Simulated assay, not measured.
Amino acid sequence: MGFFFTPRFVLINVIVIFQCFSLPTFAQDFDFFYFVQNWPGSYCDTERSCCYPRTGKPSADFKIHGLWPNYNDGTYPSNCDPSSPFDRTQISDLVSSMEKNWPSLACPSSDNTKFWSHEWNKHGTCSESVLDQYEYFETTLNLKAQANILQALQTAGINPDGSHYSLDKIKSAIEEGIKLTPGISCNVDGSGNSQLYEIYLCVDSSASNFIDCPVFPNSNCASSVEFPKF
Rank of each mutant, 00 (worst) to 15 (best):
S83Q: 09
W102F: 09
N72G: 08
W68P: 15
E226S: 07
E119R: 13
T25V: 15
F62D: 15
T6R: 06
I184R: 09
N112F: 11
S219P: 13
P228A: 05
T55I: 05
P85D: 04
S185K: 01
P58A: 01
I64C: 08
T155I: 15
N121R: 14
G2A: 12
S219C: 09
N38Q: 09
I17Q: 11
P85E: 06
L153G: 08
T55K: 02
A106E: 14
A222Q: 05
P58K: 06
W102L: 00
S83A: 08
S194R: 03
S208P: 08
P108L: 14
E99G: 13
R54D: 01
V10E: 13
A156K: 12
Y136E: 01
S97I: 11
G177T: 11
C51T: 12
F18A: 11
G157W: 03
G162Q: 09
D204T: 08
L150W: 03
N218P: 13
L167S: 10
P40G: 06
K169F: 07
G192A: 06
N187T: 11
S49F: 15
G190M: 09
K63Q: 00
A222D: 11
N159F: 11
D189S: 07
E47P: 03
N148K: 12
V36I: 15
F35L: 10
G190S: 10
E175T: 03
G74F: 10
L143I: 04
L67V: 07
F21K: 15
K229N: 13
V14S: 03
D31V: 05
P217R: 15
P77M: 01
S110I: 08
P82W: 00
G157F: 14
T140S: 12
M1Q: 04
W102A: 04
P228D: 06
S97W: 05
A106G: 13
S206Y: 00
G2L: 13
R54K: 07
S92W: 14
Q195A: 06
A147G: 04
V215I: 11
V203T: 02
D111G: 08
T125L: 02
F5V: 00
D189W: 01
L141S: 00
F21G: 13
N193G: 07
Q37L: 00
P82A: 01
F227M: 03
S96N: 07
S172L: 14
P214K: 14
E119N: 07
A173D: 02
F216N: 07
A106Y: 11
N193H: 10
R54T: 00
V10L: 12
A152S: 10
V188N: 15
S194L: 12
D111W: 07
S96L: 10
L153M: 10
A207N: 10
Q90K: 10
L150A: 03
I91P: 07
